[in-house]
Design a protein around this nucleic acid. Structure first.
Lengths: 227, 227
DNA sequence: GTCTATACTAAGATAGAC
DNA sequence: GTCTATCTTAGTATAGAC
């Protein structure tokens, strides 16, 4: 009896894995249950016995993604500043981001967003993530570490949006720009923007922002949890 | 004879306008030709006489959008620095951004992206926009005004991605956060990132970055061409 | 439990009457 | 040139054999 249980779980994992890959490369609408079943090597009917609907399957992926984010956000701060925690969250979003999910979660239209808001399991987690991120922004602003003029909800949405950017570039180019570099650029852009002041005005700043860009990149990558 | 011509053009403009609105609020896949026809007040068949396919209609919208961007990018620099021109472009993208187009153009999957790459009229413009933006980034880096560690293609994709963020927020909240403020936040985040240095290190910097946030916001809004 | 075959639905696209 | 009615395709979902 327990053997079948395990086999069932294994197959379900296989399905989820395939679905994640397909969804990431083709998006929600262009990924059909037929393709998922075909890739796994089972029939559509069997697939529907594991997941009673497409949205159940996609919902599972979203829950997994959000749970990973929540685990990071709910972990003890360990003295990390709000800005660093935001960077770490963005780093995770960039690396595990599935292209099919992210963009449509950003859009306030789109099937994915409707799905998330519809399913309590997804909605609750999503709202917790958003709330948690917004709180970190507010915290950072109170501490003077984040521009007070930035609207917190916009910052949060910007993170979701930016989490896609690296993936696109990886898709466009061959290996000219590896994903680690792309992810690093995204996180740095989030932290420091594109603008760079003409000359580092003090040694303190030089140390803080990194005068040699290579070092700064490594630091940021470490902060964001990129490989 | 010429009367009919004009009437035809007028109706076509009406169709385009309706399509843009629907697409912006519901996205590509959730906007059907039926809905477009219904909203305009004509039948599907008539709609198909103006635009032989859905992609023709959507393609038209994309071309219009990209042409506006190109007009801005190809206008004489007038002494504007690369960073300022990038900010202006992003400002335009944020304001006229159609939610249905932007996100799927970011994704390297998605129907919209396929459409753009498929249709020469779209593809050529899109590539010109990307090239032009990337060149501005490189220019800014050469001048020392943009972080040299940032990968230019990533910056460009980040702009496309960020252009969605403001729209989402506007969709979520009521009027708590008006779209001008949201757009301003996005552009500022792009320029300066979220991180703010503890204390302005010199009067020069105070002036350059803006010590009172209100002023800085206004300056940025002006730079980006936001109302 | 897994497959084959099929029902059902929605959307893109077209034919033919007027 | 516009509409009604219809075709085609594709994708979700299910029934029934094994």
């Amino acid at each position: 009896m327990r053997f079948h249980e395990r086999q069932r779980l294994a197959r379900e994992q296989e399905i989820v894995s395939v679905a994640r890959q397909l969804l990431a490369s083709k998006g929600y609408h262009d990924t059909s249950m037929e393709q998922v079943a075909e890739t796994v090597g089972i029939s559509k009917a069997t697939l529907y016995q594991h997941f009673p609907s497409k949205d159940d399957l996609v919902g599972r992926l979203i829950v997994e993604h959000l749970d990973r984010l929540l685990a990071l956000l709910d972990s003890p701060a360990d003295g990390a500043a709000p800005v660093e925690r935001l960077a770490a969250a963005l780093g995770l979003m960039v690396t595990v981001h599935t292209r099919g999910i992210g963009p449509e979660l950003d859009t306030n239209a789109g099937a994915i967003r409707a799905l998330v808001l519809d399913r309590p399991a997804c909605r609750e987690r999503y709202e917790r993530v958003v709330t948690r991120l917004a709180a970190l922004v507010a915290e950072g602003q109170a501490a003077g570490a984040i521009h007070p003029g930035l609207a917190a909800p916009v910052v949060v949405q910007a993170m979701f949006a930016l989490s896609c950017a690296a993936g696109v570039v990886r898709g466009q180019r061959g290996d000219a720009l590896d994903s680690a570099t792309a992810g690093e650029s995204v996180v740095r852009l989030f932290l420091d923007g594109v603008r760079r002041l003409p000359q580092p005005p003090s040694t303190f700043l030089r140390a803080e922002r990194g005068s040699r860009e290579g070092e700064a990149g490594a630091t940021i990558a470490k902060t964001a949890g990129l490989s």
